[in-house]
Write a protein that binds this DNA or RNA. Structure first.
Length: 582
RNA sequence: GCCCCUGUAGUUCAACGGAUAGAACUGCGGACUUCUAAGCCGUCAAUCGAGGUUCGAUUCCUCGCGGGGGCACCA
């Protein structure tokens, strides 16, 4: 198959228009949302009809007549429909060839890969949890979106570096350390399990945050601790700080491994802070930043943004100043073509100010920084807060999901290790899919009951479809059956063919990947995998795939193999693995 | 008050300005007893309101109403 059939059609249309002395700049070609309207559809006649004052349907008919003169062999039929749409139906031979291409040795695992970002170095910063605070489902969200986008970019050929920026200094740390004094529970011993240590820190933080505003003295103490953390002047604070920081980071590492993220580089606020001070002071002298009420701010009202504090009246760098430094620190380690930062959308306004500051401090970095924001993960009951300790931690959620998966598998003939592995993959699929199935910017109402159901529109449903396909293929291999014999010429053997929806969908995978990449929106892949799964399950229910009586059984096996590759690669792009059995 | 985001079946989500607005869950009704029923088939059910632009609007614009977020020393 040479080139993309869509491009072939576009140039064919352009040529045909030319032959009729017509012209249209960009030919718009799409897959109709309904397969009954063909595989491709163009609205040229509608657009052009208006321009040349012709009735669209009549124009479309004329175009089709002309198109039919040079019909490529991949097209079986062209029709005029509706208000003047031209619909193209692909020929069975096209699909046969496509399927053969997908399942050919060495191709399947790479199906969907694109060379679009070859030789680019792209940074993706995401997750960004704060040591001393819990890793909750909000971080799960950032991690899920970030990992998926990283994999997409990498699938498009770029060299991706995953970055994690962690707030190891700042008020939240001071609150945690201050909170330790209020905790009745003793400081965990070095030998205590990590989960206990982390829980202790989370409690300390919650307690500190709750009581901080009880008395004015509390605020003074907390500010003092915050200062001590920055200048490391207090032995006791140093010890608590170093210990807590280490535990937190160790704990995060466990979670990343489970989630399938491997960061290439970590950056810390404690390093960014002094550097941020330096940069802001330098540009303060140049008049970019100004003093206001004892703080150093970037005055932005005139550009419609908020004025924000970069150095507070205590002389400490705020998140804004640190972030300005972070951009430079990243660039030093990885001189990139593009630097993506993924955060929750609550900082959208703030991020605009940051980019505005970067225009002054490092204009070259400002132009290649891209901010992607995701919505917040909300529970049907209401918002959660780590300040009050009212959070669902990632750990708790994942283990609930795992237990549920184990229970579902209790009658399966799998050994315990297989079950455990499958349950882990299933739990991650459930949570990640529920995050990625919708547009990135929107809030997610996370219903735990639904996520635990694993039915219908869910990650486990897609995994299940994949394992079913694999199970059939395994049986076929045991019987030494051929999977899609490329030597058989279908065009002569099977003329009165009925195409299945499945094959009409499978070949589109690379287009879906491309669109997801262009818009940085993994949900297109999620939706597509769901559709493919539905088509496969129908096919599976209606067709005896392994059937010695049927001489096209090998082609049905080919469809099964192609489905398996598409689902596996697609799930990979969502950051989801596939169990061998489930 | 100002700024940003958002409003689609009972619920959770889709729909690159196109055709009869698509899924899943729920409800109701089925089939099979063949390769994994976490499955399959059928059915009920929706574009917040009013204008405008357009051959065509869920999509773009204006206004209104509802929801979320932000508005200086937290991140």
């Amino acid at each position: 198959m040479d080139g993309n059939i869509g491009d072939v059609l576009k140039s064919l249309i352009t040529e045909t228009l030319k032959a009729l002395n017509l012209e249209e700049g960009e030919i718009f070609l799409e897959h109709p949302s309904d397969l009954r309207h063909g595989d491709y559809s163009s609205n040229v006649a509608l657009v052009l009809g208006k321009k040349v004052k012709r009735e669209p349907v009549a124009l479309a008919v004329e175009l089709v007549e002309k198109l039919n003169e040079k019909l490529p062999k991949e097209i079986s039929k062209i029709e005029v429909a509706g208000a003047g749409f031209i619909n193209f139906y692909l020929a069975p031979s096209f699909f046969r060839a496509k399927m053969a291409e997908i399942v050919a040795p060495g191709n399947g695992d790479n199906f969907g890969r694109l060379p679009l970002l070859k030789n680019k170095l792209i940074l993706v910063e995401f997750t960004d949890p704060n040591p001393f605070k819990q890793f909750h489902i909000g971080h799960l969200m950032s991690n899920t979106v970030g990992e998926s986008i990283s994999r997409l970019i990498s699938f498009a050929g770029a060299n991706v570096k995953r970055i994690c920026y962690q707030g190891d200094v700042g008020r939240h740390v001071a609150l945690a350390i201050w909170g330790i004094r209020l905790l009745k529970v003793p400081f965990p011993a070095e030998t205590a399990p990590l989960s206990e240590k982390v829980k202790y820190l989370g409690q300390a933080y919650a307690l500190g945050a709750t009581h901080a505003k009880d008395t004015p003295e509390n605020e003074v103490e907390i500010k003092s601790i915050n200062q001590k953390i920055y200048d490391r002047s207090d032995q006791e604070v140093n010890e608590l700080y170093d210990q807590g920081r280490e535990w937190s980071l160790e704990h995060f590492e466990e979670i990343y491994e489970k989630l399938g993220t491997k960061f290439d580089q970590y950056f810390f606020e404690s390093v960014a802070a002094p550097r941020g001070l330096e940069i802001v002071k330098k540009f303060f002298k140049k008049g970019v930043f100004v003093e206001s009420e004892g703080a150093i701010v970037l005055p932005e009202e005139k550009s419609g943004l908020h004025t924000r504090v970069f150095i507070n009246s205590q002389g400490l760098a705020t998140y804004e100043a640190k972030e300005v430094a972070l951009a430079e620190m990243k660039e030093e380690v990885f001189p990139s073509d593009l630097s993506i930062v993924i955060t929750a959308n609550e900082v959208n306004e703030y991020f605009k100010v940051l980019l505005s500051a970067l225009q002054f401090t490092a204009p070259n970095l400002a132009s290649k920084t891209q901010h992607i924001s995701h919505g917040l993960l909300k529970l049907p009951e209401g918002k959660m807060s780590s300040r009050t300790g009212d959070v669902i931690t990632a750990e708790t959620l994942l283990s609930d999901l795992e237990n549920k998966a184990l229970e579902k598998m209790k009658d399966r003939e799998l050994n315990n290790e297989e079950k455990r592995k499958a349950a882990e993959l299933i739990s991650i699929a459930a949570i990640k899919y529920s995050i990625l199935k919708q547009k990135t910017g929107k809030d997610i109402i996370f219903d735990i009951e639904k996520a635990l159901s694993f039915e219908g529109d869910s990650g486990p449903y897609i995994q299940y479809t994949h394992t079913r396909a694999e199970s059939v293929l395994r049986k076929a291999k045991e019987q030494n059956l051929i999977i899609l014999d490329p030597n058989i010429d279908f065009s002569t053997e099977n003329p009165a063919d009925i195409l299945s929806d499945l094959e009409r969908y499978l070949y589109r995978f690379p287009e879906i990947v491309e669109r997801s990449l262009n818009e940085m929106e993994p949900h297109y892949i999620a939706t597509y995998l769901m559709e493919v799964s539905g088509y496969f399950n129908s096919f599976y229910a209606n067709t005896k795939i392994i059937d010695i009586e049927n001489k096209f059984s090998h082609y049905n096996l080919g469809l099964t193999a192609a489905t398996s590759f598409v689902l596996k690669n697609g799930l990979y792009l969502l950051g989801i693995g596939v169990p061998e059995k489930m």
